[in-house]
C-alpha cells in the first residue's frame, strides 16, 4: 500500500504523467461504451481536430509563460483563413495550378497571422497596453473584419486538392498533421533547451530581473506575440484544408480552447510555468472528449462540463504543487479511502 502511495506521489508531481493517465482513462472509458471509438478512423478525427488547436495552444503557451495572454488567436484563425481563401479563389479563377495556389495560400495565411501578431506586439511593447486589452482589441477587430470581408458565409472556389490534403495518410495523421507534429517538437526544443525559451521563462517569472540581466524583454515579448499570430495563421490555413473553404467562424472561441489546453497542461496564468508536452496532452484531451462524447451519444454540452472539471483539477494541482504539498494532498486522499 505504501508503495502505491509513493508511486501516486511521484505521479502527482509530474503533470505530464498525470495527463497521460487521464487520457488513457478517457480512451478506455469511451471504448468501453462503444468499441468503435478505438479505431484509426476515430483517432484520425481526433488528430485532425487536435492539429489546429495545438497550433494556437502552443503559441498561447509561449505567451502565457511570458506572463501575458493572447485572446486574439481564435479571430486570427478566422481572418487568416478567410484572406487565404480569397487569394486562393482568385488564383484558381486565374487558372493557376493547385499546388502553386496552395503554397501561396499557406504563405498568405501565415502572413496574415503575423500581421495580427505584429499589431499585438506593437500595442503591448510600444504603447504599453496590457496584453489582455491589446489582444481583446485585435480579437474584436479580427472577427469583425472576417465577417465584413465575407458577408458571413464560407469562401470556397479554391483548389479541389485542399480537402484531400487533410485526409489521414500515416495512421491517424495527415501530411499537414505530421508537419504540425514536427513543428511542435522543434518549438518544444526552442522553449526548453534554447535561449529563446529561457528568456521567456525569465520574463514571465520576474520581468525586472530579466531586464536587469540585460535581456531586451520588449523584443522577446514582440517575438512571442508574432509567433502566436503566425501559428494562428497556420491553424487558419489548416481549417481551410479541412473544409475546402475559408469560414469567418472557423476558430471562433479558439482562444478559450487554447487557454484551456495550456492550463490543463500545467501552465500558470501568472507566468513562468508551463511545458509544451503539457499543452500537447491538454489539447489532445480536449479533442478526445469532443469525439468521445459524439461516439457515445452524450450531448456536446457535457464537453464544457468535462473541460471545466479538468481545468479546476489542473488549477488545484498547481496550487498544491506551489505549496509543495501535491504529494501530501494525494496521500491524504488515499488515507481517507482506507
Amino acid at each position: 500500500m505504501s508503495n502505491l502511495v509513493n508511486r501516486a506521489k511521484s505521479i502527482a508531481g509530474n503533470q505530464q504523467a498525470l495527463l497521460l493517465l487521464v487520457l488513457i482513462a478517457m480512451i478506455a472509458f469511451f471504448t468501453s461504451r462503444n468499441s468503435i471509438f478505438f479505431s484509426n478512423a476515430v483517432f484520425g478525427n481526433i488528430i485532425s481536430d487536435w492539429a489546429p488547436i495545438v497550433l494556437i495552444a502552443i503559441g498561447e503557451t509561449f505567451v502565457i509563460i511570458s506572463g501575458g495572454i493572447d485572446l486574439s488567436v481564435g479571430s486570427t484563425v478566422a481572418i487568416s483563413g478567410v484572406v487565404a481563401a480569397f487569394s486562393m479563389r482568385s488564383l484558381t479563377e486565374h487558372g493557376h495550378g493547385s499546388t502553386q495556389t496552395l503554397i501561396v495560400g499557406f504563405f498568405v495565411s501565415v502572413a496574415t497571422g503575423i500581421l495580427v501578431g505584429a499589431i499585438n506586439a506593437f500595442l503591448i511593447t510600444k504603447t504599453n497596453v496590457v496584453p489582455f486589452i491589446a489582444t481583446l482589441v485585435t480579437m474584436g477587430a479580427g472577427s469583425g473584419l472576417a465577417i465584413v470581408f465575407t458577408g458571413g458565409g464560407p469562401i470556397g472556389g479554391g483548389p479541389d486538392a485542399a480537402i484531400q490534403l487533410s485526409v489521414p495518410k500515416v495512421g491517424p495523421f495527415s501530411y499537414p498533421g505530421l508537419a504540425i507534429v514536427a513543428l511542435v517538437i522543434v518549438l518544444g526544443f526552442f522553449l526548453h533547451k534554447a535561449r529563446f525559451g529561457r528568456y521567456i521563462y525569465a520574463i514571465g517569472s520576474n520581468e525586472f530581473a530579466a531586464r536587469a540581466a540585460g535581456i531586451n524583454t520588449k523584443a522577446y515579448l514582440a517575438k512571442i506575440y508574432i509567433l502566436s499570430g503566425a501559428l494562428a495563421g497556420m491553424a487558419g490555413y489548416y481549417y481551410y484544408l479541412r473544409l475546402g473553404c475559408g469560414a469567418p467562424t472557423s476558430g471562433l472561441g479558439g482562444e478559450l480552447q487554447a487557454i484551456a489546453a495550456v492550463v490543463i497542461g500545467g501552465a500558470a496564468l501568472s507566468g513562468g510555468e508551463g511545458r509544451i508536452s503539457g499543452t500537447v496532452l491538454g489539447a489532445l484531451i480536449l479533442t478526445t472528449v469532443t469525439s468521445g462524447l459524439i461516439i457515445i451519444n452524450v450531448a456536446a454540452n457535457w464537453k464544457q462540463v468535462v473541460v471545466a472539471i479538468l481545468i479546476a483539477a489542473a488549477v488545484l494541482l498547481q496550487e498544491a504543487r506551489a505549496k509543495g504539498s501535491s504529494s501530501k494532498l494525494l496521500s491524504n486522499l488515499f488515507k481517507k479511502k482506507n
Binding site: A209, I215, G272
Partner: peptide, 15 residues
C-alpha cells in the same frame, strides 16, 4: 532580482 521559476544556474547565468 532572481527569477523564481528558473533554476539556480539559470539565474546565475541569466543574460
Amino acid at each position: 532580482g532572481l527569477a523564481p521559476h528558473l533554476s539556480v544556474s539559470a539565474n546565475v547565468f541569466l543574460g
